[in-house]
Design a protein around this nucleic acid. Sequence first.
DNA 1: TAGTGGTCTAGACCACCCT
DNA 2: GGGTGGTCTAGACCACTAC
Lengths: 244, 244
Amino acid sequence: MVIQRPKTIVEQVTEVLRLRIHERTYPPGGRLPSEKELAQELGVSRTTVRTVLAKFATEGLIFRKQGDGTYVNEYVDEVETHYGGIWDFSRLIEANGYRPSIKTVSLTSRAATPEEERKLRISAESPVIAMVRVFYANQRPVIYASNVFPDTLIKVNVAQLVGNLPLHQFMQTYCHEQITYVVSDIEAIIVQETQLQTLNAPVGTPLLKLRDMFYNKENIPLILGMSHYDFTVLRLRRVQTWGQ
Amino acid sequence: MVIQRPKTIVEQVTEVLRLRIHERTYPPGGRLPSEKELAQELGVSRTTVRTVLAKFATEGLIFRKQGDGTYVNEYVDEVETHYGGIWDFSRLIEANGYRPSIKTVSLTSRAATPEEERKLRISAESPVIAMVRVFYANQRPVIYASNVFPDTLIKVNVAQLVGNLPLHQFMQTYCHEQITYVVSDIEAIIVQETQLQTLNAPVGTPLLKLRDMFYNKENIPLILGMSHYDFTVLRLRRVQTWGQ
DNA sequence: TAGTGGTCTAGACCACCCT
DNA sequence: GGGTGGTCTAGACCACTAC
């Protein structure tokens, strides 16, 4: 049971304009109609239009020139790779131009390790659900992902759990929890013999390693995540804007 | 000659509130005054206050609960590590709790390589300035950074260039250019013998590698960057918020 | 029910770019 | 001078939470 909210005006405008940019109605390097025109055409206030455009600007999707106009980034395709964030792996794989698929390696209940107890702020030896999955890009394994979360969050029968959902959807469906923010530490590792199987990468290959903490709106730690990431196939890209 | 603009109201409110959070006037986990109260106290509109709070919320600095209030993130210290972004290395080192220093290894003019020509969109064999620097955290080398940019950008005598400025300040001072966004690809490498000296890391150690493209407001590529990053000392952390 | 944050509007004024 | 984006305001109405 996923809660449905009616879409806000800002969300609707976001969708419309993102589509127009994506489908070249406003071509790369081209100019958008003025904020005033967009507001009139869509029947919303200029402020609402500006909210959406500001978001696009921080994504690097558009450029705004005072006294001139708003332009689509010439290199939209480059920038769009960044969509969905690095923790929604399916969307990331899609954004890189591949067809994503997920294989659930294991999904079991076990006692928490001391580190897990501390980071998830749960009591000693509480049961946790441990989920290990491998993400494929066009059949090729590219991400190994391990996620651990407190058993108490689960609102359904454990046997019903299926690992082929994106994490935020997984949490919504089975735990009625909404992931609102994620803190990720990025590291590098070298493939050891013991990990040989996971990504079909030869021993000695460097991989990216992400350590994630997922929180809900109340700042409660939901999930502890760890993943290995083959950057030779997927780009781990970060777009940052300066000033505002 | 750095252009000075008067600070906007939003910028001033941002400074005031960030300071109050940082200095525990509003303690971690504590509640901020309501938006209305803040607006009245600071003599600005509620909209302005909301602009600032929205920015803090995306940084994970605060939490906003509808019908309840706005709370400082209990783990502010964790989140503040993220400040300044991964491309302002001095600020990053500071945010990790170390004293930053910079050593300029070389700063020379030379012909561009084919890759540099393509990425910087300059004509064949145009001269470029190549700057190699090492960043230290409390005397310990932690980042090796190489930056290349077209010779034509430089507005001063090349002999005057000094490499101990943060990149955006460097570009402002010597090129009168403003970096507005950066696209970084994150990869992993293994220290080879030829790189042995740079970060005092033994051969075989995994390091993070960042490939950056810096752009100005007009979407002109300014700088091509490449850096090696010792994540055992500095955390490369990413905070991401979902929805809005 | 009172107070909070969430959404949206209409409009003022400014800085800037173009011609 | 006319049009564009940048900044800021005052206020309406809604959704939600705590009491």
